[in-house]
Structures are given as structure tokens and as C-alpha cells.
Design a protein around this nucleic acid. Structure first.
Length: 594
RNA sequence: GGUCGCGUAGCUCAGCUGGAUAGAGCAUCUGCCUUCUAAGCAGACGGUCGAAGGUUCGAAUCCUUCCGCGAUCACCA
């Protein structure tokens, strides 16, 4: 039984016998560092049912539980706070359980729970991935892993925005100025090549607008009537009508982009279980609009367009089908959601990892799906995150003011290499091993940097000020893992023996470390409930801080007796395991040496 | 203008389902490598938690108003 439950029932009994009142629940918190004790009961809430001085009540409670609960070694009272000290035996027993638990903190797949589908990435296929996509990918991947760790089956998916005017712009520019270039002929990654033509289109488009304005055309009109734009629109019409030449070009260029994306995803360490393409799904959803029209969820305006009235929800009216009967963004998303559940009948909920500029869209989408009566519609979550901005402002692909994903990954690895070579701790490693390590560290720094902050907040990324490798960073945590591995390599004794509790007293640092270690399962649960990788990141940091403090002040392999040596090594081993698990949830690898 | 989000140390962020003296890292300054990896540890410096009211025994946390920043309010996706 968890100690909280034991204490709760003891405190309830204490109130019954001393005051003859029934207490429903007891509020616990970890004892603050500046006070003596391990767990604290806040007495103030009891004042509602028991009149009296909080100090006296706390003292009375303390006397009672000290006498009746074996795990309680002592207590002290500060104002209305009852600080409880737990016994060494309690801690050692707790550790013994933790030590023997495989995958501590990770819940095995629960058969009775519905699966969740997590969507992330979902790029346009006309330009390379940038830092904004990296945030999206890392968040989506981490949340998927965290949900898995809480016992859910998870499908990772994305919707690839492979159609529309933006693709046609790249295609058109390539047709006009590409001279048959291919990734092979240029040596460029496919997404980079296509992205270049997207930029080229924009440049030409701007030139045409300027010359039109010079000819006396109004700016607004010029923007709409630039010949190159009209050509792109014509291309989109041809694509939609299935024009063979255009469709072939579209397939070829998208193919290049996918190959490029695959490389970036692999470098980033993210993956997907199933893919959806907008070109397949953009027509979905219309039949449900028809059905919703019948059931009264939607209504038709005079011009034939279909709308959903959300004014009773405090929102506006929202169009779900154009007057000409074609689909809009919303139609498509309604259809795609339904299709996903159809394709995966075990799925009972969807998570969308999409930037916060879509907050309104998803609010409306979820409401509409609820109104349409799908029972899974209550399990929809928009994992909304803030933009990654540069000191100069927003990243814009067209204007070339983006931090390219591939470049950034290379930079991170280079920085890791520089630091590592300067420290020179890697004798005996082959060049391949070293390169792999630099990548692990560089990626670790980047991923932790992004995942440790609350998704809702926008991130300001300054390319000139490089990402830290010291302090509250990924490499700091990886380093601690590597140090523990070093100890484990040197430990030449049997680790399976159980520490004999009678002869072991616990150092304060060991106690603190044990307390921190035991929190892991609860942290995973909270991270899962809140879709928050940041909780895992911050927990890892706290655990590692605690461990380093222990490491610095308590000898491990040099402990005085066998008991202590084994116990401390076991403790170190378990801390390393938890670091590895926690970082695994964040998609960050840990090195054996560094 | 309506709606949503954010505002905590010079900088980057924790804490926010109300609890004790608001915590870390970076930067600046002090110590600690003949002992298990110094990408570390120990310490110093640094705060009217955007502002003002309110609720409460107790507010960074909840409520109201205001200020600042961002997003959104398309028959674009």
C-alpha cells in the first residue's frame, strides 16, 4: 500500500478517536527542503471540521501516527504543517521493490483501453522542414511515447498536405526554369530542390506584381492578376481534373520531397505507423455534411453553401461546404477524422499536434464532430504549441528566413564534436563510435532544449546564441547517465544481493535520491494526462541534480563496507535506468561514455 | 473591436488542480580534480511573480478590470 494511503487511514482514525469526526481526505505534499521530514500533512483544511489551534491538532495527529504507523519514525510541527519523517526501513523496502521492478514507471499495454492516434508533422510538400516542424515532430513523438508508457496503444500518423496551390507554384517554377533538374543531377536533397523552386516562384511573382503596379494597376488587383499566379491556378485546375502530364509531374516532385523528408525524419529519430495524404482525403467529409444537413446539425444558405451554427456555443457560424459543392478545410478534416476511426476501429481518440494559430479551427472541428454524434468526439485533443520565432521575427520559407532542420541538426552535431574533442575523454573509441556519440549529444541538446518548455509558450530561437550544453540541458543529463555506466563497468561484484536493512543507515543524499526516484511513475501519469513532455524533462533534471549531489558527497565503489557498496551501486543503476526510460519518452538517446 | 494564449531574476525557463522564507540554468563572482568522468559539485549575487482590486486562515496560482506581446476572427489550407 502506498504510504499516503496508510497515513490517510491512520489520520482518519486519529480524528475519529480524538475528535469524533470523519475526515474524507488528507492533503499531502513533499516536505520542503528547509524543513526536517519526508512528507507533510497540511492541517489547515481540517479546521473546517475541527475547531482549535492548528499547531495543537497537528501535534496530536503526529503523536497518534507515530505510535500507530510503523513507517513513521518521527515528526515535527511548524505552524499548521505536520512534517513526517519516515523510517529507514520504509525507504529500503521501497527501494527493494523499485529495484526489482522491470521498466519501473512504465505501464504495460492495457488490453481494456482504447487506442489513441497521434497526428504530428503534417508538412506541406513544397519546401524543406524547418525548426517549427522540429518542435512539432518532437512534441508529437514524445506525447505518443508518453501515452504508450501509460499503457495505451498508440498510432502515430500524419496528414501530408500534398495538394493545393502551393505545390503548383513549385511545379510551375520547375517547369519554367528547372531545365530538367533532379535531385540526382544536382546532388540536392529532394525537398531542398523543390523548395528552391517555391522560392523562385515567389521571386518571379513579386517581380510581376511590381511591373504591373508600374503600369498603373492597383496593388490588390496586381496581386490577383499576376500572370504566373493565374498559370499556377490553371495548373491546379488541371491537376484536379486529372490531367496526365500535371499529375505525373506532381507525383515525381512529391516523390523527391518524400525522399528528402524521410532522411530528416530518420536523423531526427521520429517515425509514423500510418500515413494520410490530403490528395486522398480532401474529398472526404462531403457525405457527412449531407447527413448533418438531414439531421439538422447544418443548414443551407440561399446560395447553396452549407454552414454550422455555433452561436449557442459562443462561437460564430462556420462554413462546411462551398456554394459550388466543393470541400473546404473543415470538410476535409471532418472526413479525415471519421476515416481514421473507420480504418482503425480500436482507436477511441485523436490527438492533433498543430500550431496554436489553429486553436479556433480545432475548437470548431471538435464541436462539429460532437454535434454529428460520434462517441469518440469527446476524446479529441488539440496539442497546441507556440511558434518558434527568430529575433528577426517569424520564419518565412518564401523569404528564406528559416532555420533549416537538416542544417540545424548538423550544427548541433558539430558543436558536440568541438566540445567533446576539447575535453578529450574518448580514447579507445573508433571514429564511427565518436561520430555516433556526437550526434547523440547534439540531438540530445536540441531535443531537450525544445521539449523542456511548456508547449503553449512560444520559443525565441537565436541562431547566434547557440544552444547550451551545460546546466539544465540534455547533455548534462546524458553525462550523468554515462558516469553511472562507468561505475557499473567497474563494479566487479554481485549486484543481485539484497541490501540488509538492519545494518544500513541512509545518508541524507540517499534519502533525497530515493524520494525523487519513487516519483517517476506518478510523473509519467501526469505527463500522459496533460500531454506534457515538459514534465518528463523537468523530472529528469531534478533526478539528475539529486544524483550528482549524491555522487559528489558519497563514495559509491569506495564505500566502507560491502552493504553500502552494493546498495549505492544498485541505487545508481536504477537511477540510470530511469534516466534512460525518461529520455526514451522524449526520444533522446543516452550514451555509454562521453 | 470580439475570442483565445502568454507576461515570474539581466537572459532562458520551473512552480499555476491555492499552502511554509517564490526555485533552477545561463551570465558575473568564490571555492573544489594525487579518490568512482569537473559537460560536475558547493556557495555568493540577483525578484514590488505586468498593474490594481477582490475571494480566502493563506494568492505567483482562483475571480474582475486594466496594460503589454502574440495568435485568430477567409466560400486559403
Amino acid at each position: 500500500m502506498p504510504i499516503q494511503e496508510t497515513l490517510t487511514s491512520a489520520i482518519q482514525k486519529a480524528f475519529e478517536s480524538s475528535y469524533n469526526v470523519v475526515i474524507e481526505s488528507v492533503e499531502f505534499q513533499a516536505t520542503r527542503k528547509d524543513f526536517i521530514g519526508d512528507i507533510t500533512v497540511v492541517v489547515f483544511p481540517f479546521l473546517r471540521v475541527v475547531k482549535g489551534n492548528p499547531f495543537e491538532i497537528a501535534t496530536k495527529l503526529g503523536d497518534y501516527i507515530k505510535e500507530h504507523v510503523t513507517e513513521v519514525a518521527d515528526f515535527n510541527v511548524v505552524k499548521g504543517f505536520l512534517n513526517i519523517e519516515l523510517s529507514t526501513t520504509y525507504f529500503l523496502n521501497q527501494f527493494s521493490t523499485i529495484y526489482q521492478t522491470e521498466n519501473f514507471g512504465i505501464t504495460r499495454l492495457k488490453a481494456d483501453e482504447k487506442a489513441v492516434m497521434v497526428e504530428y508533422s503534417s508538412p506541406n510538400t513544397n519546401k524543406p522542414l524547418h525548426l517549427g516542424h522540429i518542435r512539432n515532430n518532437l512534441l508529437g513523438y514524445a506525447v505518443a511515447e508518453i501515452l504508450k508508457a501509460s499503457g495505451k496503444k498508440v498510432y502515430k500518423t500524419q496528414i501530408i498536405n500534398d495538394r493545393g496551390i502551393h505545390i503548383c507554384k513549385s511545379m510551375l517554377a520547375w517547369q519554367k526554369w528547372g531545365k530538367g533538374e533532379t535531385p540526382e543531377s544536382t546532388g540536392l536533397k529532394g525537398d531542398k530542390l523543390v523548395g528552391n523552386y517555391y522560392v523562385k516562384f515567389d521571386q518571379e511573382y513579386k517581380k510581376e506584381i511590381e511591373s504591373l503596379i508600374a503600369d498603373g494597376v492597383a496593388e490588390e488587383t496586381a496581386k490577383k492578376q499576376a500572370p504566373i499566379l493565374l498559370e499556377a491556378q490553371e495548373m491546379l485546375r488541371k491537376w484536379e481534373s486529372g490531367d496526365e502530364e500535371i499529375v505525373d509531374l506532381w507525383k515525381t516532385m512529391n516523390g523527391w520531397v518524400y525522399k528528402g523528408f524521410d532522411i530528416t525524419y530518420k536523423d531526427l529519430g521520429v517515425d509514423f505507423d500510418t500515413l494520410y495524404y490530403e490528395s486522398d482525403t480532401y474529398l472526404l467529409g462531403k457525405e457527412f455534411v449531407t447527413e448533418g444537413l438531414k439531421s439538422g446539425v447544418f443548414f443551407k444558405k440561399d446560395d447553396g453553401s452549407v454552414w454550422c451554427d455555433l452561436t449557442d456555443e459562443g462561437l460564430d457560424e462556420k462554413i462546411v461546404l462551398r456554394a459550388d459543392g466543393t470541400a473546404v478545410y473543415m470538410t476535409q478534416d471532418i472526413g479525415t477524422a471519421i476515416q481514421r476511426i473507420k480504418d482503425h476501429p480500436d482507436v477511441g481518440g485523436l490527438v492533433y499536434t498543430v500550431g496554436n494559430e489553429q486553436d479556433y479551427h480545432f475548437k470548431v472541428l471538435f464541436l462539429i464532430l460532437k454535434k454529428l454524434g460520434f462517441d469518440w468526439a469527446k476524446n479529441l485533443y488539440h496539442l497546441s504549441y507556440g511558434m518558434v520565432d527568430l529575433p528577426s521575427g517569424k520564419m518565412k520559407s518564401r523569404e528564406g528566413t528559416v532555420v533549416d532542420a537538416d542544417d540545424l541538426l548538423i550544427n548541433m552535431t558539430n558543436t558536440a564534436r568541438e566540445i567533446s574533442e576539447e575535453l578529450g575523454k574518448l580514447e579507445g573509441y573508433t571514429d564511427e563510435e565518436k561520430e555516433a556519440l556526437y550526434k547523440t549529444i547534439g540531438l540530445g541538446a536540441l531535443k531537450y532544449f525544445i521539449l523542456k518548455v511548456d508547449p503553449k509558450k512560444r520559443i525565441l530561437f537565436d541562431p547566434a546564441a547557440s544552444i547550451d550544453f551545460q546546466g539544465n540541458t540534455g547533455p548534462f543529463i546524458q553525462y550523468t547517465y554515462a558516469r553511472i555506466q562507468s561505475i557499473l563497468r567497474k563494479a566487479d561484484f554481485d549486484l543481485s544481493m539484497v541490501a540488509n536493512e538492519g545494518e544500513l543507515s541512509l545518508h541524507e543524499k540517499e534519502r533525497n535520491l530515493l524520494k525523487q526516484l519513487s516519483l517517476f511513475p506518478e510523473v509519467v501519469k501526469q505527463a500522459s494526462d496533460n500531454y506534457s513532455p515538459a514534465l518528463i524533462a523537468n523530472y529528469s533534471y531534478d533526478l539528475v541534480k539529486e544524483y550528482n549531489s549524491f555522487y559528489q558527497s558519497v563514495p559509491i565503489l569506495g564505500a566502507e563496507n560491502k552493504q553500502e557498496k552494493v546498495f549505492r551501486t544498485q541505487l545508481s543503476k536504477k537511477v540510470a535506468e530511469v534516466i534512460k526510460s525518461a529520455f526514451g519518452l522524449l526520444g533522446i538517446a543516452v550514451p555509454e561514455r562521453m
